[in-house]
Design a binder for these strands. Structure first.
Lengths: 113, 113
DNA sequence: CTGTATCCCTTAAGATACTG
DNA sequence: CAGTATCTTAAGGGATACAG
């Protein structure tokens, strides 16, 4: 979300959309569970604050990756889910996630010692 | 490079290693050209400052993704190339780069209007 | 329950000047 | 040529309190 507009390459654009600490984690949670309320989402993304969760969700929504569904009732109920477009991004993220999974240990150890 | 250590998932770890504005662009330049001197790399990554280029290269080197070769001579000559490990990361980035390439226009337009 | 509104701190990044 | 050093700004993120 650097908003530095016209990108030097596709990766640049993709990281602008999914970069930062939380967005990819939010997408993964939605991919796994399909449809989550705000509070559920907060529990599925450990460590995130309410402020960051709302903020990142709004940006994901603005970029058309996430759908927000408000059920008019008391107490409030809002559900979030991935759009089809969001699903294509999520698929593109799979190899990167697998790479991280495979090499996490190596990276951490290398940095420690 | 948030250094928040033990990750919540692989994607988290991968983005820690390749996140930020420049690292992926540097990797791509090295993947394309194979081996580049500092000055060549600076020209291949448009807009980057010397400070950022050095800083990001040092981190990529520390993580074992990039190899730094100093040729002891005057004037100085230092060449950078991707390690085999770096190449595996680069491959994992391809789908994401392609996604960005395909959807760049859509993203930009949506944000504009 | 689903958010807003502040305040504050840390980090990322940019500009510029200088050195072996 | 390949960096260092320093300063400044911009952005990301966190803590806490509060509201509909």
């Amino acid at each position: 979300m650097t908003a530095h507009g016209p990108y030097s390459c596709g990766l640049d654009a993709a990281l602008d959309v999914v970069g930062g600490k939380w967005k990819s984690l939010i997408l993964w949670a939605l991919a796994e569970h399909g449809r989550l309320r705000f509070g559920e989402l907060r529990r599925e993304v450990p460590g995130i604050t309410e402020k960051m969760l709302v903020q990142q969700l709004r940006q994901l929504e603005a970029d058309g990756l996430v759908d927000r569904e408000v059920h008019q009732q008391v107490p409030p109920k809002v559900e979030y889910s991935m759009t089809d477009f969001g699903a294509t991004l999520n698929e593109a993220l799979v190899p990167l996630g697998e790479w991280g999974e495979r090499n996490m240990r190596r990276i951490v150890e290398r940095r420690a010692g």
